[in-house]
């Protein structure tokens, strides 16, 4: 408790100091969920980078996975009179009153990565990825790569019932629909982890004739794919050749696997949500252009042809 107060206090002090030093620069408050995953750490790094590039004075508040901290941070941003607020909301509900306060103070709020259940006139816009689209980009890659060849696909799902798992599964199924050559023969959850990805892939390989019956693996995230690649290797097969591997997220480790020829493609869930947010904000500040209520980030496909080693070098220091 004490440390939390001390942190908030230190944050306030730091932000007050920063405010006095750069009176001309636009100030934006950013309330981040916390450091729940490598991806989120990269999102924070990129947001700070983007703000620096644009000369924006970014006030950063880490909520340590607690909504009350985010509400506190938002109120303190409002009290400081920032020009805009970015928030990655930890949960979807309970934001109405604090968003109304921001509206009354005429401070535009932009949601990053996650949505809220409040009415959409309470925020300027939301920037995020379309998870269904990610799945269909992965599926489309497989359709194009096969070019009509018969292929049995096994799927490693994310945590059962989680929205990324449901959406990425739907998207993939939409993309392979109508292609009779592609069959989804097995689908199991790997809980988004390497350990489970490896264990489940081991059982897939045994269940499908030592893997001879499997032509491709679709994993809902890269970590499961990395685990599965090890299982494939230990079974004496060549991942990337005997079994094609496509996954989603584009974390640095999958680029190493791609550089080694062991993974074929990954769809990026870009951690750069702040870039489009700042662009929309700049247009809104300049002449009042209202951005659409949802700005979809690009779900970029990376394959072995995209110089994976270079992408790895680029990404490895982002804090993934």
């Amino acid at each position: 408790m004490i440390s939390k107060k001390a942190l908030v206090g230190a944050g306030l002090l730091a932000s007050m100091l920063m405010m006095s030093s750069s009176a001309l620069a636009q100030t934006v408050g950013f309330s981040q969920i916390g450091s729940e995953s490598g991806w989120r750490a990269a999102e924070t790094t990129l947001t700070l980078q983007q703000a620096k590039e644009r000369g924006i004075d970014l006030k950063f508040a880490d909520a340590q996975q607690k909504q009350e901290n985010q509400i506190k941070a938002l109120r303190s941003f409002i009290a400081q009179g920032v020009d805009a607020i970015l928030i990655a909301p930890v949960v979807a509900t309970g934001w109405d009153s604090v968003l109304e306060e921001a509206k009354e103070a005429e401070i535009p709020v932009i949601l990053l990565d996650r949505m809220v259940d409040s009415s959409d006139d309470l925020y300027l816009t939301a920037v995020g990825s379309d998870l269904v689209h990610e799945g269909s980009v992965a599926g489309q890659w497989l359709v194009d790569e096969l070019g009509g060849k018969d292929c049995n696909v096994v799927e490693l799902q994310g945590t059962t019932g989680s929205s990324p798992a449901i959406d990425r599964k739907n998207g993939f199924e939409q993309a392979i629909e109508g292609h009779a050559n592609i069959k989804l023969i097995r689908s199991q959850t790997g809980d988004f982890t390497r350990t489970k990805g490896k264990e489940v892939m081991e059982s897939f390989l045994k269940a499908e004739d030592g893997g001879k019956n499997i032509c491709a693996l679709y994993a809902h995230n890269d970590d499961m794919a990395v685990g599965a690649i090890q299982a494939i290797k230990e079974a004496g097969l060549k991942p990337g050749e005997d079994i094609l591997v496509v996954s989603i997220d584009a974390v640095p480790d999958i680029f190493q696997a791609m550089a080694a020829g062991e993974a074929n493609a990954t769809v990026e869930l870009t951690p750069n949500m702040a870039g489009p947010a700042f662009d929309a904000l700049a247009a809104y500040m300049k002449d009042g252009t209202m951005p659409p209520k949802f700005i979809q980030t690009e779900s970029k496909l990376y394959t072995q042809a995209d110089d994976p080693q270079a992408v790895y070098e680029q990404k490895k220091d982002l804090g993934y």
Partner: peptide, 11 residues
């Protein structure tokens, strides 16, 4: 050693 990495969240 099994996954060639330490996953503090899930190990």
């Amino acid at each position: 050693a099994d996954i060639r990495g330490a996953d503090a969240n899930n190990a």
